[in-house]
Amino acid sequence: MIESYQLTQGDTPLLISMPHAGTALTPEVEAGLNKAALSLADTDWHIPKLYNFAAELGASRLEARYSRYVIDLNRPENDTPLYAGATTGLFPSTDFDGEPLFEAGQEPTKAQRDWAKAYIWRPYHNALAGELARIKERFGYALLFDAHSIRSKIPRLFDDQLPDINLGTFDEQSCDPDLSQTLQAVCAAQSRFTHVINGRFKGGHITRGYGDPANHIHAVQLELSQRTYMNEPSDEQPIFAYREDRATEVRPLLSGLLEAMQRWGEVSYNKGK
């Protein structure tokens, strides 16, 4: 069995979580997925590579190893729905387009799902909670940035084309409203990429479950349109391919958002917030 996550500890109050970057499959899931699903289309492709500048910022990084088709780390363990309308759950049976993932009769058994909870979901969340606790003990507060990406056009999930930058703060419940406004200002200061906050994606289980501004833990989710850094199905080149030319353009904005979070924390907590 491979490790379910990789944690790299930094030396600042910022932790970047990447729960959907994994592509590993258990033997049972790999055997059960249909041919189309084996492409792992709903992966947050190349997120660790895109955020490879995070080490220079001193941020901690937590990267998932297993695919969300095995178990979705951004869903609650009891599988309570997070969004009204079309969505996927803790153990997805369809992809984002609503197409079945598994061959008939080959869906994971209860025993296999219990194993995934015990050996993939809980270890990731234990590591996440532990790192936030370590950071808060050292600095007095913690900043959590949950990094995601998604195709820009998925009619089943949202109308038209998704904005490039989709920030989620659970309607300003997962972080201080001033931090939310600070990040909006960073996006508004540039014109290359479209942006929205608390639109279709307000933040999943990690943002909602760990963001606790009253206790000095501030969580933000970014759902990044994949057209900003890779090929999508509409491109003529192979899909899911990383595009350094595009990544080079969007990376300064990503860095700007993370640096703004760090500056906000330094200023706010130096003032005794």
Rank of each mutant, 00 (worst) to 15 (best):
E3T: 09
S4E: 01
L7H: 07
T8S: 13
T8I: 14
Q9L: 13
G10S: 13
L14K: 12
I16N: 05
I16C: 07
S17P: 09
G22C: 04
L25T: 09
V29M: 05
E30C: 02
A31S: 15
K35Q: 15
T43W: 00
H46E: 10
I47R: 00
Y51C: 07
N52G: 13
A55D: 15
A55P: 01
E56P: 14
E56H: 12
L57D: 13
L57K: 05
A64V: 08
A64G: 10
A64L: 04
R65E: 04
Y69H: 08
V70D: 05
N74K: 02
N74C: 03
P76Y: 12
N78K: 13
G85N: 03
G85L: 03
A86W: 00
A86C: 01
T88I: 14
G89S: 12
L90F: 10
F91L: 03
D97S: 14
G98V: 04
G98Q: 02
P100R: 11
P100K: 09
L101C: 06
L101Q: 09
A104Y: 05
A104H: 06
A104D: 15
G105V: 05
G105K: 13
Q112Y: 03
R113W: 06
K117C: 10
R122E: 08
Y124N: 02
H125D: 01
A127S: 13
L128Y: 07
A129I: 02
G130D: 00
R138L: 11
R138W: 04
A142L: 09
A142H: 08
L144S: 06
H148Y: 00
S149H: 10
D159K: 14
D160K: 15
D164V: 02
L167F: 00
T169P: 06
D171M: 09
S174Y: 11
C175D: 07
D178I: 04
Q181L: 13
Q184T: 11
A185W: 03
A185I: 01
A185F: 02
V186M: 09
V186C: 08
C187A: 01
C187P: 04
A188G: 12
Q190A: 02
S191G: 11
S191P: 01
R192I: 01
T194V: 07
H195S: 14
V196M: 07
G199W: 07
K202L: 09
Y210P: 00
I217H: 06
A219K: 09
Q221D: 06
Q221T: 12
E223T: 03
E223D: 11
L224Y: 08
Q226S: 12
T228L: 04
M230R: 01
N231Q: 03
E232V: 15
D235A: 14
E236V: 10
Q237E: 14
Q237C: 00
P238H: 09
Y242C: 08
Y242S: 04
R246M: 10
E249T: 13
L253D: 07
G256E: 09
A260T: 05
M261R: 04
Q262T: 00
R263W: 01
W264P: 02
V267Y: 09
N270K: 14
N270P: 00
K273F: 12
K273N: 12
